[in-house]
């Protein structure tokens, strides 16, 4: 397997012209420069596997199909920015997919805490999803940094680790919530809504 750190940077600045070359007529979101590591395409865009391979060749490794549920229920989450940090490609992919479905905007995906901190400082997201056990810097240390620099940012710690000590430590360093993987849509939805409906700006966690 290719080492994760050989991956391209998790965010791509501007790729519009190249995308229009590859997929003529593709509807590309206006704020493409924020579509970290991927691009947003309208739900009715038909993409073949060959398109996706070509897009990948030019450094885009993620496609977000705009199918976000227009349900009012998701209003507290709509257009909120998120950064997802996890060393598992699968987890980043699935989590981003779920966040998009709730109307959130995943502006950064990172395989390490270091990249995650960089993405967080660039995008100042409203939400950071942080894995606890990461290859180099520990997720808890990254949570501490983010919480100190951006106290308004909600931090959702995620891990397969369900040990009490780990969970307590994550909350202590500044996480607003902790979820044990696997994380399914039905469970994530109420937890995120709860996180963002606590509207008290002074809520010290």
């Amino acid at each position: 397997m290719q080492p994760e750190n050989a991956e391209k940077k998790p965010y791509v600045k501007s790729v519009r012209s190249r995308i229009e070359d590859i997929v003529p007529g593709m509807a590309v979101a206006e704020d493409i420069k924020n579509a970290a590591g991927g691009i947003i395409v309208a739900a009715d865009t038909f993409l073949t596997r060959a398109h996706i391979d070509k897009l990948r060749d030019c450094g885009i490794d993620r496609l977000y199909i705009q199918t976000c549920d227009m349900n009012k229920e998701f209003d507290p989450l709509r257009n909120k920015r998120a950064v997802v940090v996890d060393d598992s490609l699968f987890f980043r992919h699935m989590f981003s997919k779920m966040l998009y479905r709730m109307g959130m905007f995943v502006c950064g995906e990172a395989p390490t805490a270091e990249d995650g901190l960089e993405a967080a400082s660039v995008y100042c997201p409203e939400l950071v999803v942080m894995d606890i056990h990461l290859p180099k810097m520990d997720g808890r240390l990254a949570i501490k940094h983010i919480h100190r620099k951006m106290p308004q940012t909600k931090i959702l710690a995620v891990s397969t680790d369900m040990e009490k000590a780990t969970i307590i430590e994550a909350f202590r360093t500044g996480a607003n919530d902790y979820m044990v993987k696997p994380i399914k849509w039905d469970i994530l939805k109420p937890r995120l809504l709860k996180l963002f409906s606590e509207n008290d700006p002074n809520s010290a966690h």
Partner: peptide, 24 residues
């Protein structure tokens, strides 16, 4: 592909991680 392999790796990671709780 890469995504599918990552999914399977994550599956096994979750299975073994959950077993380690019982072992503990």
């Amino acid at each position: 592909d890469e995504y599918a392999q990552s999914a399977l790796a994550e599956l096994v990671n979750m299975i073994v991680a959950s077993a380690t709780i019982g072992l503990a």
